[in-house]
Amino acid sequence: MEKKSVIARLNKVSSPDGDYLVIYRANGNFRAFNYLMEVLHIFDRQDLFHLYDFMREQYSEVTLDGFALILWGDLKIMMESLTEGNEQSDFWSGQQDWKIVTWRLYESCGVCILEFEDGIVIHMLVERRYPLSKDLLQRMLDLGLEVERESSVALDLIRFIKQQIDEE
């Protein structure tokens, strides 16, 4: 089996349609995108973790703006521990007001997405426990998980959510 080519660099490209980030792989292939959700269709878990590591290493000392800042924020919320006192813990407040529009699973990379009425999108790893309220978890189950096809990952995620509700 051929080993997949890793991410070699990221570039910001501005166009009349807006800003894009271009992911260049070591083998010369590249892909432009302007939302994390766009790459979830083509990324697997290895790609996702590599993108996070790459951005953390390359951009930790750089002031980001535009889409790069949004991407970095999405990746940090998804990947980093959200413990008390963490600057991101405020992000999770106000869940009682969050109005979920969709709850979707991208199985290839193990990410589920919550989209809200106000346009906010949260990307979450399926196996990670996030500080979601029991009420929000129940609203997720009531809405239903959107999947491309029924799978053990989707069923395990639903069981995991039910277990979290029962534990509270």
Rank of each mutant, 00 (worst) to 15 (best):
E80N: 03
K99N: 05
A26F: 12
G66I: 03
L21H: 08
E168G: 15
F33H: 04
Q138K: 10
I122V: 13
R159D: 15
K162P: 00
Y59W: 09
Y106W: 03
E80T: 02
G110E: 09
Y130D: 02
R104H: 11
Q163V: 14
A154L: 06
N11V: 14
E127K: 13
Q96S: 13
F54G: 00
D53W: 11
F33T: 02
S152A: 10
S108G: 07
N27G: 02
W72F: 15
S15I: 04
M37E: 15
E2F: 10
L125Q: 11
D142G: 08
S152L: 12
L137R: 12
L141F: 04
M55H: 07
R9N: 15
E87T: 10
L143M: 05
G144Y: 07
Q58Y: 05
R56P: 00
D47I: 05
Q95P: 01
D74E: 15
E167T: 14
R9G: 09
F160I: 00
L114S: 03
L48E: 04
Q138F: 07
V111I: 11
D53V: 07
E80W: 00
I100W: 08
D90Y: 14
L10E: 02
Q95A: 06
Y24F: 15
I158V: 14
D90T: 07
L155Q: 14
R104V: 11
Q164L: 14
D44V: 10
S14E: 13
S15G: 07
Y106E: 01
G66L: 03
V153L: 14
E167Y: 15
M79A: 08
F30I: 00
N34C: 08
L48F: 14
G18W: 08
I42V: 14
F54Y: 13
G66M: 03
L75M: 11
E168C: 13
S152W: 06
Y24Q: 07
N86E: 15
R149L: 06
M78T: 06
R149D: 07
D19N: 12
F49L: 10
S93H: 14
L143P: 00
W98D: 01
G144V: 06
F116I: 02
Q88P: 01
I165F: 11
Q95E: 10
M140D: 02
G144K: 04
R129Q: 08
G73W: 14
N86Q: 11
E146Y: 09
N29T: 13
